[in-house]
Design a protein around this nucleic acid. Structure first.
Lengths: 214, 214
DNA sequence: TCCGGAATGTTGCATTTGCAACATGGTTTT
DNA sequence: AAAACCATGTTGCAAATGCAACATTCCGGA
């Protein structure tokens, strides 16, 4: 019902065709409020989620209760158990960090060939390719960050990415320090200690969530 | 010149059409021998590499000389600077672990829409979607492994994946112990120590590269 | 076959990290 | 206003990790 033609997934497809596809795809939209849980593992197993608005985090909850953020998805990111992979013991938590609007599409319709040969299906697939390429880049970035052995290495690697994105040595953290520790998969207090050290050594300035890399 | 129609990328497309596309795409194939270097960062910046045969590793070389394996690609995996992301200080090494056959395609032709509207382009894009989905899964797996804080956690997480893939608690390591340490981004000697402990505790049996998870 | 290089295995030690516990400050709820 | 809550800081300590150095085994080429 909303204007989907402006989203990256449906760009270049007319509103009528979009409506037709949505029916053909048996897709549905859902709105969520901040801090609401989208799904725990497997509830949307056969669907791919497309984040139209808002931002979400995907985390693993271990048996001991510890929580590690696997992904942080903002713009028109894709997610779903199809990607969050199958043979997982621990629970996966998909949490809305802001009010969100999500479009669910049956995996089948996107990955496999459409038997109805919808006219604009291939355009959709091409758009989806863009989104996938973006996801691959973000995941590669994440692997890059986590591949650093030390907390300082992870912090610096991530800060450089943020700094490059902002196009300036000054940039804001996209989330809280607590969430940052989860994102980097390190202990929060150890991270605070390291941040303090880096400040003392003059590598970094910090004022709340605003950072300056020197 | 070889039989590309059997590859995942070109499946469902006739040999004639493939030949036509290869010209249209300005693509080229190249063979590499074991331990040969495919490219150092940026040499194939505008091309996407498709591994037709063999297997390769993608690693980061740090300024201090340490080497971390970011990806290990076997079947018909895709790689390229397009994915290995841009604002990277360290050198990226793409190394052939076996004799390899690689098809390079200009990124442009795959990501953007083809002006010539090749008949089978959309089928190709759909095939590529499969490959991308596979890559996303592998990367998600890797993030999952690296998100564990301890060496033991990383080892167990990876071994469980291998065990599930093999469909048995007994499975072979796909590479050497040295490479395993690089893949997990941990110190090799510390990893050996941990493997020994796990053996002593009866969690794991090991004979060379053959592992048994208990 | 012998040699040399590479992978494997082992250990001591300094450092880093995680963990637990607690103090502070800000914000929301009652 | 008080209470409750949560994020931010801080610290001591035990355990895990990285690092360096070295012994041993494996393997391919001369």
């Amino acid at each position: 019902m909303e204007n989907l033609s402006k989203t990256e997934l449906f760009s270049g497809i007319s509103d009528e065709d979009i409506q037709q596809m949505l029916v053909c795809f048996q897709s549905f939209q859902k709105n969520y409020k901040e801090k609401e849980t989208i799904s725990i593992r497997n509830s949307f197993g056969d669907y791919i989620g497309l984040l139209l608005e808002g931002c979400i985090s995907i985390s693993r909850i271990r048996m001991d209760g510890s929580l590690d953020m696997l992904e942080y998805i903002e713009d028109s990111g894709i997610f779903g158990d199809a990607f969050t992979f199958g043979n997982q013991e621990d629970a996966i938590l998909v949490l809305c960090e802001q009010d969100c609007r999500v479009l669910f599409i049956e995996k089948h319709h996107i990955i496999k060939r459409c038997p109805n040969a919808c006219l604009h299906h291939s355009r959709l697939v091409e758009n989806l390719m863009h989104l996938m390429a973006g996801k691959v880049m973000r995941l590669t970035e994440k692997v890059d960050i986590l591949s650093h052995r030390s907390i300082r290495g992870k912090l610096l690697c991530y800060f450089r990415i943020l700094s490059t994105q902002a196009g300036s040595p000054v940039f804001p953290l996209p989330f809280s320090l607590m969430a940052l520790a989860n994102f980097l998969c390190v202990d929060r207090s150890a991270m605070m200690r390291e941040l303090k050290k880096m400040k003392e050594e003059g590598i970094l300035e910090r004022n709340g969530k605003m950072m300056r890399l020197l």
